[in-house]
Nucleic acid binder design. Structure first.
Lengths: 191, 191
DNA sequence: GACAGAAACTAATATAATTAGTATTTTCCC
DNA sequence: GGGAAAATACTAATTATATTAGTTTCTGTC
């Protein structure tokens, strides 16, 4: 049994790669093991089963998304920040069709998970706060922006947009509408 | 073997019920069969396996959602229609946490599926067209509205909103922002 | 009442996750 | 360097699930 040099990181990376390259077929432990040149039970030396593995894949994806989003809004504000954030968000979703959806399913009670999720939401909140939103309005706005970006990303990658109209153009339109909408609510909220 | 009087409809209904009442645990054929007082293989007399069953569950859910949405916008227009539509949409998603997500995953190439999906989108398009949108703008707006409603529904039911701020209030805020945003784009698009 | 088809069943097979137990390799301590 | 301890990968076996094959029983029709 020549040792292959497996690590938890490599197992997680293999699972993520499988998810993103073959989003259709689910990544079984058997496939992941074959990908790594190993038999299925060997994975248990590095990972506590498929559920735990998927949790790790999710955490990793959330952290990478958080980094991308943080970078996108850095040094920007207002509409500029929103467009950059939205662009980065969508690019991530397109590049990672299999792991992206995992970044938006919460695990209530999982502290480590909640921390990462909070870090991913932070850039959204940051630029909205910079736009003058506070209190409940800030929360509402953040949820609105996240909902729009998430919904579009899912519908776009799951082929939910049937017509022959450019998806990228629709995304631009959506971001502009959200920008205008949130701005309008901001004005409305502060007399 | 006393005959139980199973039909495809009853199998589909049982699967849907299981999905909506226990959204966590996946609805296996074994569970569905037990629910119906029958052994697993008996289901194959009415349904072509679990994939085909899930397709039928999806179709059924899409059709019910389409009916609800159609009814909600009937006799309304403009913001009034949007608020009614959004309310109906969210009520459906909350009432059917397990089957709702199935209504928004497309099956390219499945004609029957595409027809039902189109019927569910129709009410959105209808009220937007009534608001004066046409051509690509109409498509963009419909995608924007669907994205926002879908994204919010998913994030809300998957506990993606961590903070203690009222989810319903956020939804109201989102719909108002979308209303303002789409209206703004409409004005911008027609000089 | 007989029969054709449908419905439900038991038995068996295939895939996937998981656990137990074993052998080998690596690490670490002296 | 040598040997104990830990880690790694393995085979074998167990469980859960979907699926198929083949059998039995019911049910409606003539």
């Amino acid at each position: 049994m020549p040792r292959v040099g497996l690590t938890q990181e490599r197992v997680v990376a293999a699972a993520a790669r499988l998810l993103d390259t073959h989003p259709a077929s689910q990544p079984t432990l058997g496939r992941i093991a074959r990908e790594l040149g190993v038999k299925t039970p060997s994975l248990y030396n590095h990972v506590d089963g498929i559920d735990a593995l998927m949790r790790l894949v999710s955490l990793d994806a959330i952290d990478r998304l958080a980094d991308v989003l943080r970078g996108s809004v850095m040094g920007r504000s207002g509409s500029d920040a929103l467009f950059a954030l939205a662009d980065a968000y969508r690019k991530f979703a397109v590049a990672h069709p299999g792991t992206y959806p995992l970044t938006q399913v919460a695990r209530p009670g999982d502290v480590r998970f909640e921390e990462s999720a909070a870090r991913a939401v932070e850039p959204v909140v940051a630029f909205l706060a910079g736009s003058g939103l506070t209190g409940d309005d800030l929360v509402h706005a953040a949820r609105t922006v996240r909902s729009a970006l998430h919904g579009f990303s899912l519908l776009a990658t799951s082929a939910g947009f049937a017509l022959d109209v450019e998806v990228d153009a629709s995304f631009e339109w959506l971001v502009a509408a959200i920008d205008a909408g949130v701005r309008g609510m901001t004005v409305a909220a502060r007399p």
